[in-house]
Design a binder for these strands. Structure first.
Lengths: 334, 334
DNA sequence: ATTTGTGATGAATCCGGATGCACAGGAGGA
DNA sequence: TCCTCCTGTGCATCCGGATTCATCACAAAT
């Protein structure tokens, strides 16, 4: 590996001069500059980023922490993050946490020893004191998927409104007995989506029937049996709103296997608009999160914070961005 | 950030002694060791990995280069890579290349200046001289998704056999007019899958009909129109084997929208077994790649190479691992 | 009593680059 | 001609650890 010293020797100057040339310091003689640049070119010199980082305390690296990249909403978010980061000269370290706080902490501790510049955290669960602490210590952090409050930078959607919109659509379409496939209650995101369900029922005067709220038991797959149980008990909704697209897929399968047609007998709707939503049969009506934009905005916010911190020494006031969701009507609803 | 020197000062010893304690050098007095460890604990000292890397030339970081994390086969592979890397103390940098060789080169050049320890490359296209060069220069590299030959470490499946198996199954099921949804021909992986299609036809005495080979034009989505065109021309296969699951999804949609039932009128089969394959309706019969294992094995091979290189100074002889595929029969075939 | 050996530690150097400071040399003014 | 001022450059130091080499104290050997 060619080092600054090699270039210096080749050009017949001192390493400091080479450094000055490369960092565009003004006080360098034009001839010297040319000589150095020539040497740089000939030796194909590339400065060692690690050495730079050690000196500067910055690594041009950010970490993206997701529960699991296998969760269908994250590939697109990740792509948004990576594209944006790359354009700004940053590389992205991918961390799967499985929502495990200890794992998350281990990751953070480890990455800090490498002068990571900031974190994008996409965990959904509470128990986030370590994230708050990170922010308080002056570390750039942007949350996505979960917004704590307005004390930390975040990008997300209005989950309650998303469900509300979906419900409005279903209700206007004449559905009166709308079931809700609810995710884990300890996840605020799902509680918000649930609230939207309740609010929509209220605002349209439809009765709230507890039996129509189906609570996830052992993971997304459990909805298969939960839906079939519901039907067996003689309860047949005219629509099912799932609190996420993957849940909607399972719901569709269960309904289909029970001999019901979608949307003929039952309409099904999801929230998220993951890639596969347009691929299933029938294509799923859903409320689209702008996943790519969420990732891209999270990254650009983070990078802006990093720059701000570098200049002023501290973080800019936190700002929460709520992005617009989009009602996508496909063929799973009538 | 607490440094070695701080610990040294606190413990009343020299930095070198602290370093010796922390790197488990034998010649340290027991009392000193205890005193140092105590200081380490009290000050919550974490060694700066960047400094270590600069000194050692290793960063405990590997790069995973994929065409796009949004391509459905990569999240699972990525998860396998990350889990394995993490267990071994490595972090993973994610790179989306969009199959762009220049982008790939830029990434490689950039990461090398950060003492990246190795690369897992999952591009499918040829034009890989830069990868070969990397290997020749003594850089640990593991290929997945695409095996060049036996001169570079790689993990993959036997693509020809995968299609062959799928065809065998379809043929045994009584299908006689089997169409093939072919991917881009410049991608060797698809050529191999195509070969399997041809070989299966031959070995079972079925005629090869060029019209039944549908060539992708403008991306995966193009199969929608291609299939409909085929039907309009009065050609109706009794089965369609797609060269990848995402293509099969589109094929299914096209057939469905043309009023054909799956598998009643036409069987559909894919290759890959991505997450969504079990979610579509009907659930897709396919040949499963062990995606997670591919990622996990690629990572462990890479790490083994890194260790080997560290000890011996050069790479171990390359080894190509072909993993077993699995016929998964769901409901899209009869 | 002097030498040799050994265990324990500190000082110096290096990794590769950035930067404050000192200094050399030429130009311009007195 | 001498002194200042300024431009351009090199030296030393630092970032945070790892490592080689040297040192020192003390004990055993001669």
């Amino acid at each position: 590996m060619v080092s600054l010293k090699d270039v210096a020797e080749y050009a017949g100057v001192s390493p400091s001069t080479v450094s000055r040339v490369l960092t565009d310091k003004p006080v360098v003689n034009e001839n010297t500059r040319i000589r150095v640049m020539e040497a740089v070119r000939l030796l194909d010199y590339k400065p060692n980023e690690l050495a730079k980082s050690l000196k500067s305390g910055r690594s041009n690296t950010i970490a993206l922490m997701v529960p699991s990249i296998q969760n269908m909403i994250f590939p697109t978010i990740t792509r948004g993050v990576e594209d944006t980061a790359r354009k700004a000269g940053y590389t992205v370290i991918l961390c799967n946490t499985d929502e495990d706080v200890e794992e998350e902490k281990r990751y953070i501790a480890k990455l800090r020893t490498r002068f990571i510049d900031g974190f994008i955290v996409a965990s959904m669960l509470p128990g986030s004191d370590h994230i708050r602490k990170l922010w308080r210590e002056g570390f750039p952090v942007v949350l996505t998927s979960r917004i704590y409050d307005d004390t930390i930078d975040a990008v997300g959607i209005d989950n309650e409104a998303a469900t509300f919109d979906a419900m409005q659509y279903l209700i206007r379409g004449g559905h009166k007995k709308i079931a809700f496939a609810m995710g884990r209650e300890e996840i605020p995101l799902y509680m918000d989506r649930y609230k939207g369900y309740r609010r929509a029922l209220e605002s349209s005067g439809l009765p709230y029937d507890e039996q129509l709220v189906i609570h996830e038991t052992t993971g997304t797959g459990s909805f298969y049996f939960l839906i079939q149980n519901l039907l067996k008990r003689g309860i047949q909704p005219d629509a099912v709103l799932a609190s996420s697209d993957p849940k909607a897929f399972v719901v569709m399968r269960a309904l289909h296997d029970a001999g019901l047609s979608i949307p003929g007998d039952v309409s099904v709707m999801g929230i998220d608009n993951v890639e596969a939503s347009s691929q299933v049969e029938p294509p799923l009506s859903t409320v689209a999160q702008p996943l790519y934009e969420i990732g891209a905005l999270a990254a650009s916010k983070l990078i802006r914070q990093i720059h701000h911190k570098e200049k002023t020494g501290k973080l800019a006031p936190p700002q929460v961005d709520i992005l617009k969701t989009d009602l996508i009507i496909r063929k799973s609803t009538k």
